[in-house]
Simulated scan of single mutants.
Amino acid sequence: MQQHASTQQNYGDDPLAVRDSEKYQEEYIEGFVDKWDELIDWDGRSKAEGEFFIQKLRERGAKKVLDVATGTGYHSVQLLEAGFEVTSADGNPVMLAKAFENARKRGHILRTIHADWRWLNQNVHDLYDAVICLGNSFTHLHEEADRRKTLAEFYATLKHDGVLILDQRNYDALLDHQVQPTHNYYYCGDSVRAEPEHVDESLARFKYSFGDGSTYHLNMFPLRKAYVQRLMQEVGFQRVDTYGDFQETYREAEPDFFIHLAEKAYLGGNG
Rank of each mutant, 00 (worst) to 15 (best):
E22H: 04
L141T: 08
T242M: 07
D146C: 07
V65A: 06
A99K: 03
E234T: 13
A99L: 05
N102S: 13
E252D: 10
Y186H: 11
A69K: 03
A97S: 14
I109M: 05
I29R: 03
D161R: 11
T242Y: 11
Q8H: 06
N92G: 03
V131Y: 03
G162Q: 05
R193P: 00
I165H: 01
L158C: 10
P15M: 00
A48R: 12
S214Q: 14
D190H: 13
A115L: 02
Y24D: 01
A130F: 07
G162A: 08
K56V: 10
Q180R: 11
L261H: 01
N170L: 12
I54D: 04
H177G: 02
V33P: 02
I29T: 00
D67R: 05
I109W: 03
Y186L: 15
L96I: 08
T249C: 09
G135L: 04
R230M: 14
K264L: 09
Y155E: 02
A152Y: 00
G71Q: 04
G268Y: 09
T215A: 10
Y24H: 13
G12R: 00
P222V: 07
D126R: 11
V235Q: 06
E254V: 04
L66N: 05
K23T: 02
F100T: 14
R239H: 13
G50L: 10
L231K: 06
G50S: 09
A17P: 00
V179P: 04
H217D: 01
E252P: 03
R104T: 12
G61T: 12
